[in-house]
C-alpha cells in the first residue's frame, strides 16, 4: 500500500512583537507527523486551538503572515511540497489536491454561476475544450448528488441551500481528479441528515481508489464512523495516531481517553467530570515536557521535564505519552 501523504515534524510559529517591541513567538504547531495511505480517510481530531486547521494550511502552503512554517517535511506522492516553488505548488492546489472548507460561501465566487466555476477550474489546470469541461462538470454534479445538474449549472451560488452549496464545493474539489482531498470541518453547521449525505459521498469517492482524504473535525462521531485512521491533536502535536478501531476502542493517551469520555454526554450530565477545567495551553509559554502534563490526570515527575517520544505514524497505533 502506497502512502499518499507523509508529513514529518511540522512546526508552525506565529511571530509578533509586543508593545515594547520584544519578539514573541506563539508555537502553534510543535512537530506534527501524519501519514495517509491510499484509499483511506484520515481523521484529524482535536479541540479549538489544537492546530488542526493550521496543519491543513501548512500542508497547502497557504499560511499568511505572521504564521510561518519553521520546520518539517511534506511529501505528496513522493514529491516534496515544502521545498516546491510557489508557482508549481499552485498547480497542485485545485488539481492534485482538492480542498473543502467549512463555509462553502468562502469557496464559491458569488459573481460566477456554478457551472462556469466548474468549467473554469478545469480549464485552468488542463487542456480541455469548453464542451468537454461542461460535460464533466454535469457528470460531477450528478455524482455528488445534486439533483437536476444541468439546471444547477446555471444557478448562482446564493441560490443554493447550505447542503447543496457544500456539494458544489465538493464537486469543485474533485473535478480535477485530485489524489488528495482535504476537508476542513466539511459538515460543521450542517444538519445531521445533510451531514450524513455529504460524508457518505466523500467515503464513496475515496474507498477502493488510489486517492486519499483527510477530514479535519472536532466531531468524534464523524471520525469513528467514516475514517479508517485518526490523528488526535493537542496543542500542536499529534498525541495519538493509528487505526480508528484501535485508538477509539482502547485509547492509550490520557488526552484521547478524556476526549472520548467527554463525548459520552449522558455520563457528563449525571455529574462525572471528564477533565480538569479546560484551560487552553498558552502557546507563548509551553511546558518543557509533555504539553498535556498540566491537565493530565496521570501526570508524573518525568512528564514535566521530558517531552515524550514522537509517535512513528506507521499503520499501528502510536502515542506520545511516557506511560502508554
Amino acid at each position: 500500500m502506497t502512502d499518499i501523504l507523509k508529513v514529518r515534524g511540522l512546526r508552525t510559529h506565529f511571530v509578533s512583537r509586543n508593545a515594547v517591541n520584544e519578539i514573541r513567538t506563539a508555537r502553534a504547531l510543535n512537530g506534527v507527523d501524519l501519514t495517509l495511505p491510499a484509499g483511506r480517510i484520515l481523521g484529524v481530531v482535536g479541540e479549538t486551538g489544537a492546530g488542526k486547521s493550521l496543519t491543513v494550511q501548512t500542508i497547502l502552503g497557504t499560511l499568511k503572515a505572521p504564521a510561518e512554517r519553521v520546520a518539517g517535511e511534506i511529501e505528496l506522492m513522493g514529491q516534496r511540497l515544502d521545498t516546491m516553488p510557489e508557482a508549481e505548488l499552485n498547480r497542485h492546489r485545485g488539481a492534485t489536491i482538492g480542498l473543502v472548507v467549512q463555509s462553502p460561501v468562502t469557496s464559491l465566487d458569488p459573481r460566477v454561476r456554478v457551472g462556469d466555476q466548474l468549467v473554469r477550474l478545469q480549464r485552468a489546470h488542463r487542456d480541455i475544450t469548453r464542451a468537454d469541461a461542461r460535460a464533466r462538470a454535469i457528470d460531477m454534479l450528478k455524482r455528488v448528488g445534486v439533483p437536476s445538474p444541468q439546471e444547477r449549472m446555471k444557478a448562482w451560488p446564493h441560490e443554493l441551500s447550505g447542503g447543496m452549496a457544500q456539494r458544489v464545493v465538493i464537486a469543485m474539489a474533485l473535478i480535477n481528479d485530485p489524489v488528495l482531498l482535504i476537508a476542513d470541518e466539511p459538515t460543521t453547521g450542517l444538519d445531521v441528515t445533510v451531514q450524513a449525505q455529504i460524508l457518505d459521498l466523500i467515503r464513496d469517492l475515496i474507498a477502493g481508489t488510489d486517492r486519499g482524504a483527510i477530514i479535519v473535525t472536532h466531531d468524534l462521531g464523524v471520525v469513528a464512523q467514516y475514517c479508517e485512521h485518526v490523528a488526535v491533536m493537542y496543542s500542536g502535536v499529534v498525541v495519538e495516531h493509528g487505526p480508528v478501531d484501535e485508538v477509539f476502542v482502547a485509547p492509550r493517551h490520557p488526552y484521547t481517553t478524556a476526549l472520548l469520555a467527554a463525548a459520552d454526554l449522558a455520563a457528563a450530565a449525571t455529574g462525572r467530570r471528564p477533565l480538569p477545567p479546560s484551560t487552553p495551553p498558552n502557546l507563548y509559554d509551553l511546558p518543557a515536557g509533555c504539553l498535556f502534563a498540566p491537565r493530565c490526570p496521570k501526570v508524573q515527575a518525568v512528564c514535566a521535564t521530558e517531552p515524550p517520544a514522537k509517535p512513528s505514524p506507521s499503520g499501528q497505533a502510536e502515542t506520545r505519552c511516557h506511560f502508554a
Binding site: G163, V192, T193, A196, D219, V222, A224, Y226, D245, F248
Partner: peptide
Amino acid sequence: RTLLSAQLSADPRVTRERLPILGEP
C-alpha cells in the same frame, strides 16, 4: 427514525443502520 440513524456514535463498534435520506429539507 431517519434523524436517529444519522447520529454518529463516537464508538466505531456501534454502527446504526442508516436509513436513506431523500431530497432536500
